[in-house]
Design a binder for these strands. Sequence first.
DNA 1: CGCACCCCCTGCCGGC
DNA 2: TGCCGGCAGGGGGTGC
Length: 284
Amino acid sequence: MPELPEVETIRRSLLSIIGRRIEAVEVVEPRLRRRVAENFASQLVGRLIEGIERRGKYLLFHLSGVLPEEERANRRPFAGGESLLVHLGMSGALLLQSAGTPRQLHDHVRIRLSGDVQLMYNDPRRFGLLRVGHTAEFVELGNVGPDPLAETFSAADLAALVRGRKKPVKNLLMDQRALGGIGNIYANEILFRAGIRPGRQARRLTRAEIRRLLGATRAVLRSAVRHGGSSISDYRDGSGRRGYFQLRLRVYGRAGEPCLRCRTAIRRTVHAGRSSFYCPKCQR
DNA sequence: CGCACCCCCTGCCGGC
DNA sequence: TGCCGGCAGGGGGTGC
């Protein structure tokens, strides 16, 4: 479910919990993609949430240290600190609720916060991940490449990623080590907007196509964030709100339907085991 | 390196 | 109505 725009929307919807203290943690179902650690709750209780950061499809909830007040005042937040790392997998949701909201099906972890609210982790398929540790030491984050929305990410950077890569450009877009945050929906939409077929060898892209690809990546992701992400089936942000970008999808899930630009039937193929959708006329 | 293929898990949809 | 196969936004592992 959640790609960069959805994760970013969730991050923004949870900013009100910054400054709150973690009062209690209840792990109902520890069997996620990785089993939730035995000491998960004890690592969290008593600490403050100092900030929420997104890296690719991961969320980091930066935690205050468990230090005496005067030492804490001298420490820069985020610098070498610890955090709660969350990945939502295919079906995960983080819901901000009033404290004591009754548990629903697939509510696996409840984090009760000061101010009578709670953060509920719900995940039907249980492909998500929750762990606490030193921010700099999460192995998962070592696989997350640069954020395509970062101002510092340039056409030259994209050209460097493309260089020498024989794999289809769609696989490159979805490779989290190359770029952080793009999944199957947005890879398809970006390539449609750029007019490039998903199966094109990355190294065969011309300079003009690379510029178009970067422009399309930014435009599609920004627009999706602006519309609160895509609610294909059950995605919700932290307040339970749906996104609306699914109404603006041009090719994803539209196999056999007419291209919105030229009416040619949209084709479906498979790259790296995931469905690709493209217009054979508009994309070359 | 690239990729085909498997796994993890539940839900939903279409066909029969 | 019910059962079954296929598919789904994720990542990770293996073997070629």
